[in-house]
């Protein structure tokens, strides 16, 4: 039954509190959504520590595992799916939105802050004792399976429904029978393309360790088909050589190519 907290906790608060606030502000103000997510992770981790400090070790663990671990990963997955490069433009399209948001935010913070400060001036700290310590999980479990059983079951049902709902919602409907089997796919492939077999791989390790290196045909010419889409083909001699080349010697030499590599001619071009 103390009203002031211990010094160690004070230190923790004053170290982690600004970090949490900075994370929140960073999330709101970073233009890149991925950065936002990382800032939020920062805040959540700080909050997790606060939970532990405040006699809720189980929730602190859950916060770190569920929120920062699972939910934020989900956010990042979706961000990757949606296109992470979609940085928000800084131009506000709604007239007065930012000003109004700022005014209202400040007003809300002032009001709620003032209200809390006023109402909780003499907040007693009963403390949870062992319930906030080693017996925390037991204490929570006791209440969860007795007084809050119904809510617990309902929450479980909610989770199931949410999971199934998300599946249903994101599923792409295909008309029955429109899915093509292996036979149809193979037939289509042989009938419509000139090249039924796989495309040649890039010339990696042939003369350079880059996917931008073209594959060589048996006659020693390069084939454009070996490039992955979107890759600019590069001159092989401008590519970094495989490491340890001095020891292995030139790949051309190793392979016994008739036409030595231009750099090997030593004409100093």
């Amino acid at each position: 039954m103390t009203e002031t907290l211990s010094g160690g906790e004070t230190v923790v608060f004053w170290v982690l509190g600004p970090i949490a606030l900075a994370g929140a502000l960073g999330m709101v103000f970073s233009r890149n959504a991925v950065h936002s997510a990382l800032w939020l992770v920062n805040t959540m981790l700080a909050l997790g520590v606060f939970y532990v400090v405040q006699s809720a070790p189980f929730l602190g663990a859950a916060q770190i595992i569920v929120y920062t671990g699972a939910i934020m990963i989900l956010f990042l997955f979706v961000l990757m799916l949606v296109g992470r490069d979609s940085s928000d433009s800084v131009v506000e399209t709604l007239r007065g939105q930012r000003v109004a948001a700022a005014v209202l935010g400040l007003g809300f913070a002032a009001l709620v802050g003032a209200g809390i400060a006023r109402a909780t001036q003499d907040l007693v700290v009963s403390g949870l004792g062992d319930d906030g310590g080693n017996a925390n999980v037991t204490a929570i479990a006791e209440l969860l399976y007795t007084r809050y059983l119904l809510a617990f079951e309902a929450t479980g049902a909610l989770l199931i429904v949410a999971a199934v709902g998300a599946l249903v919602y994101t599923q792409i409907e295909r008309a029955p029978g429109s899915r093509r089997g292996q036979k149809e796919l193979a037939r289509a492939r042989f009938l419509t393309t000139d090249r039924p077999q796989t495309l040649p791989g890039p010339g990696v390790y042939a003369r350079a360790n880059s996917v931008a290196a073209p594959a060589l045909l048996p006659d020693g010419t390069t084939t454009e088909e070996s490039f992955a889409t979107g890759i600019e083909p590069q001159e092989v001699d401008q590519m970094p050589r495989p490491t340890g080349r001095e020891q292995l010697g030139s790949p051309d030499g190793a392979l016994g190519t008739l036409d030595p590599a231009p750099s090997d001619r030593g004409d100093g071009r």
Binding site: E3, A117, Q121, V125
Partner: peptide, 19 residues
């Protein structure tokens, strides 16, 4: 330091989220 520092911090975080 008292407990209401946590509460004020929570209020600030909430406001930042809302904005």
């Amino acid at each position: 330091m008292t407990l209401n520092y946590y509460l004020v911090l929570a209020a600030l975080l909430f406001t930042i989220g809302a904005v």
